[in-house]
């Protein structure tokens, strides 16, 4: 999708092949992500979503092509530099948690970046406040629930102050409450100016929170646009073995049969469209006998 705003992350003709593999995991990917965007990468397992995201913070470098982050090619700058711009949060928070307290866990990255103690403490407090874990600062991290550990993982990335956040599968293993809580947090972070990229299989989450969606299939970006356009194009999604959210499909079927609005992404939108339609029908019905009487 073309973006008018200044891109903070851009991939130019990027292909990537893992060592020892016979095939490219990514093939000729072009993508521009503007500052302050909230977008979702969707696609099957093995489609290349995580590989693409790992190219953004220098965990991987392109085999061919170039990834430019905040004006610097990832071929030229290392992960030390990139980790301060692109924060990458893994799917399983337990892959990174090891400290004795929540506070120490969040301070880990700051220590490695040589941040002085006073400034680090301030950043830790702020990161914990942002994710709503300030009251848990002195607890043992593994005693937190899964949703809270996910927030802790986000906080430990946030403490470094990166303007871009990549969150791999933010809602996996979470119940509805946990899902809403973490997604609201990501929305708040986005609204405060950060660029948020989520990698997910949850199409309801995409529909509700991400204004832009990138569909990846077999290492290629096959759709990139507004979430409304992408998720209401069933044929295109089918190509990547994906389906729109159920409420979107209901609306599409009703659209085919009776002209119901087609671009519905959420239950709330569906209800609004339904009520509007019902009100119009009532108004027309009320108007009809009156006009007949006049005649």
């Amino acid at each position: 999708m073309a973006t008018d705003r200044d891109p903070i992350v851009a991939a130019h003709g990027v292909s990537f092949r893992y060592a020892g593999s016979d095939a490219n995991a990514l093939e000729s990917v072009d993508l521009a992500i503007a500052r302050g965007e909230f977008l979702a990468f969707v696609g099957q397992n093995g489609a290349g979503k995580t590989t693409l995201a790992k190219l953004f913070n220098g965990l991987l470098t392109p085999t061919t092509g170039d990834v430019v982050v905040d004006g610097s090619s990832t071929h030229k700058v290392g992960i030390d530099f990139l980790s301060k711009i692109v924060g990458y949060c893994y799917q399983n928070p337990d892959h990174q948690i090891f400290s004795n307290t929540v506070r120490e866990e969040v301070a880990f990255g700051l220590k490695h970046h040589g941040v002085p103690a006073a400034a680090a403490a301030e950043s830790v407090t702020e990161a914990l406040r942002l994710v709503g874990l300030e009251h848990q600062a002195d607890r043992y991290p593994f005693l937190l629930g899964r949703g809270e550990r996910q927030k802790l993982a986000v906080a430990s990335i946030l403490a470094l102050g990166p303007p871009v956040l990549v969150i791999d599968e933010p809602t996996t293993g979470l119940d509805l409450g946990g899902t809403r809580s973490i997604m609201r947090l990501l929305r708040q972070l986005n609204e405060s100016g950060r660029t948020v990229i989520i990698i997910t299989h949850d199409m309801n989450v995409v529909a509700e929170y991400a204004p832009r969606t990138v569909v990846i299939s077999k290492g290629r970006v096959i759709r990139d646009g507004s979430t409304r356009d992408v998720l209401t194009n069933e044929a295109a999604l089918r190509e990547a073995f994906l389906r729109p959210p159920q409420i979107t499909r209901v609306a599409l079927r009703l659209h085919e049969r009776c002209g119901f609005p087609a671009g519905i992404l959420t239950v709330d939108e569906f209800l609004t469209a339904y009520r509007s339609r019902a009100a119009n029908t009532t108004t027309r019905a009320a108007a009809r006998p009156a006009s007949r009487g006049q005649g």
Partner: peptide
């Protein structure tokens, strides 16, 4: 394989 993932996760937080 898990070790490789954990190393990546910590590198993403600045560990060298």
């Amino acid at each position: 394989a898990k070790r490789a993932t954990i190393v990546e996760a910590q590198r993403a937080r600045g560990l060298r």
